[in-house]
Design a binder for these strands. Structure first.
Length: 347
DNA sequence: AAGTCGGGGGA
DNA sequence: TCCCCAGACTT
């Protein structure tokens, strides 16, 4: 009770002013929560504004094409969020007449909505006492109560969820949930938290036992694997190039890229030219090949490090239909491709 | 239970 | 470098 009251009191004095805090409309809350998954507020905020501006209602979002949604999402990462966002928008608009489910249990059934997001929407929009447990909550609870169960274990997930559920203020769950998250983000932050001015330091086990830097405990994940990407940037005399849609599983699903040749390890110009001469896009054509980047461009994802080359290939005409170079900006591309397009300055 | 899915930023 | 971020989904 003291814990909860102290948090909400801190929150009323320290909370940031954010657009999704001015509403309880489930469409906007849902949108903000999807955008903010694994994403810092400062990174997600401009995307939230852009989505609200372009799609003021869930019907507007439902009426869009997926490609259009992905384009607006470009650069934010975890693109399955955008695909699921669109799927759920169509479902709620078409099947539920635009009315969002109003309980934790029903919200959980929506694609892209897990335990955290269902709890957030249920509490903020419908005043249901469902406790949120995000990265901030794990940190605050593990420190204050001195819990060393790994937060990314199934045991930890259960334990922290139950604890948060016991602590939540049942009279104002929305305020409590947002307070504990904001407290974790601003006050009880991962590195160099402000323990000396913390209103909870007296009862904080980690602080009193000098274990702030040991908590929360997290099981380390495997190291990223190296991959070697070679993109073929075709340029024809009639100003066309080739973009392909990424299908199937794996990263960047449904985004566009230049034709990709993935190899075992890095390669020099002469060998690469020999290797691609027999490619369907190049056989029976003469072409000029040059490597755009002197050194491989390293693009780091959570589980892969991409060592990337952009090969400029000048041809008279393309072997396939291709797209006009001046329309290249209409396609949703991974930021790795986007950065290249920008620096190459096609048009 | 472990892996996969992005990109940016802090120390 | 390594870690973290208003996590969810697949294997």
């Amino acid at each position: 009770m003291i814990f909860s009251k102290t948090l909400t009191n801190w929150y009323s004095n320290n909370k940031r002013i954010l657009p999704w805090r001015e509403t309880t409309n489930p469409y906007y809350i849902w949108l903000s929560e999807i955008i903010l998954q694994q994403t810092q507020v400062s990174q997600g905020l401009p995307y939230y504004d852009a989505f609200v501006a372009k799609y003021p209602t869930i019907f507007d979002l439902a009426d869009a094409n997926e490609s259009e949604v992905l384009k607006l999402w470009q650069g934010l990462g975890y693109y399955s969020r955008a695909r699921n966002l669109h799927t759920t928008a169509k479902y709620v608009a078409d099947e539920l007449k635009g009315v969002f489910p109003n309980t934790y249990k029903e919200l959980l059934k929506l694609k892209g909505v897990g335990d955290y997001t269902a709890s957030a929407i249920a509490s903020i929009c419908f005043n249901e006492a469902a406790a949120v447990v995000d990265g901030n909550v794990y940190r605050v609870l593990s420190r204050y109560f001195g819990i060393d169960t790994p937060i990314n274990s199934s045991k930890g997930a259960k334990e922290f969820k139950q604890l948060a559920q016991e602590l939540i203020d049942k009279k104002d769950p929305a305020e409590f949930n947002q307070a504990i998250m904001e407290f974790g983000a601003i006050q009880c932050k991962p590195k160099n938290p402000y323990c000396n001015i913390c209103p909870l330091n007296e009862g904080c086990i980690a602080f009193n036992k000098n274990r702030i830097n040991d908590l929360p405990v997290k099981i380390k994940s495997a190291k990223a694997k190296k991959k070697y990407f070679n993109f073929l940037v075709f340029i024809s005399e009639d100003q066309k190039t080739i973009l392909e849609k990424r299908e199937g599983k794996g990263i960047w699903q449904n985004l566009y890229q230049f034709p990709l040749i993935e190899i075992e390890k890095n390669i020099d110009s002469k060998n690469f030219k020999k290797q691609i001469e027999s490619d369907d896009l190049l056989k029976n054509t003469s072409f000029e090949l040059s490597l755009y980047n002197k050194e491989p461009i390293v693009h780091k994802l959570s589980h892969q490090h991409l060592y990337t080359n952009f090969w400029i290939i000048n041809v008279e005409r393309l072997a396939v239909k291709g797209i006009s170079i001046h329309k290249i900006h209409e396609y949703a591309v991974p930021i790795l491709i986007g950065n290249f397009i920008e620096s190459f300055n096609f048009d």
